[in-house]
């Protein structure tokens, strides 16, 4: 069985978890459809890693229930994890063993793993040539790649990845994205927690946003980002008012907002495919935009949903003022 009757590979119902007096999860309800890449987003301290730990049996919930691959998952259901691959927080290995030996050591636990599978995965993550080097000497990116390989060891039906892009170079990120999308296309479910919103936007079919231990939004990427499209335009500071007026004349224009913080920036709430129209309207009005950017819509949605929670929960990184 790979999914419940309602097509879910993973579900949590009113899951609660506290560490002493600190509430980490406060009634979490996730519904992860089978065969998709699910982006699990949330600010620091929102409960993402706690959720990952609960889903892999490292922690047990104080209340609520979890379903993995269509069946209840509790203390006595560890064998359910034979069909689950996980990379939780930083990848963990024996520093004195090489990559191949580490995968063999991991493969000795849980579901049975063949030597051929280990070699296949070393090829997949591009570590075949360094497979005999001790992992203690690996860079963060190489450890991360090995971590992804170890998560894939048992050819899992459900893959749980916590910040898998950590330390990966751009080519590695692209390769990882393509690999995960390919896995989803073969019917596997990929559950990815990440802070890289642009990356998640490109990769995920469905997203769930968590804040202060609760799910605040969940749905398909397409549905959630509807109405969140935006294009950012930069013009000379003294041309902002004129630009605003010109942009307001666009057919079916979205709202035009002027940035209070950085002079010269305007945000037009229309689809990225209409960037050419913006350029044309401004040019015809004698204004030449110095920059034109399709805004990261997911980022805006994320910030609008989590700003309050992240500030109250763990404090916010204020940045240079």
């Amino acid at each position: 069985m790979t999914a419940s009757a309602d097509g879910l590979a993973l579900a949590t119902r009113d899951v609660r978890k506290s560490y002493g007096s600190r509430v980490a999860l406060n009634g979490l309800n996730l519904s992860v459809p089978a065969g998709v890449v699910y982006g699990f987003l949330g600010p620091n301290g929102a409960g993402k890693t706690t959720t990952m730990r609960l889903l892999t049996g490292l922690l047990h919930p104080d209340g609520g229930s979890i379903e993995v691959l269509g069946r209840p998952f509790g203390r006595r259901d560890r064998k359910r994890l034979f069909e689950v691959g996980a990379l939780i927080e930083s990848p963990s290995f024996y520093p004195f063993l090489n990559a191949r030996e580490n995968l063999r050591a991991m493969g000795a636990t849980g579901a049975r793993t063949t030597t051929a599978r280990i070699e296949e995965l070393l090829d997949l993550v591009g570590l075949q040539e360094r497979a005999t080097d001790k992992v203690g000497g690996y860079s963060l990116g190489m450890k991360q790649r090995l971590g992804i390989a170890s998560a894939l060891l048992s050819d899992p039906k459900l893959l749980l990845l916590d910040e898998p892009a950590n330390g990966l170079d751009p080519a590695g990120i692209v390769a990882m994205r393509e690999t995960l999308q390919h896995l989803a296309s073969t019917g596997k479910t990929v559950f990815v927690s990440s802070h890289l919103l642009a990356e998640v936007q490109q990769m995920a079919d469905v997203i769930g946003i968590i804040a202060a231990g609760k799910l605040v939004k969940e749905g398909s990427m397409e549905a959630l980002l509807q109405g969140e499209d935006a294009i950012k335009v930069r013009v000379a500071a003294d041309q902002v008012a004129t630009a605003r007026e010109l942009l307001g004349r666009l057919p079916n224009p979205g709202a035009v907002e002027v940035s209070d913080e950085i002079p010269g920036w305007l945000t037009v709430r229309i689809g990225a495919e209409r960037a050419g129209e913006i350029n044309q309207v401004l040019a015809e009005g004698g204004i030449y935009a110095s920059r034109l950017e399709a805004g990261s819509q997911l980022e805006e949605l994320f910030l609008s949903l989590t700003a309050d929670e992240s500030a109250s929960h763990e404090g916010t990184f204020q940045g240079i003022r």
Partner: peptide, 18 residues
Amino acid sequence: GWGTLKMAVARGESRSRY
């Protein structure tokens, strides 16, 4: 310390047996 027990548990290995 190295988190290797964590990895084994997450793979469905029995904690006490391990």
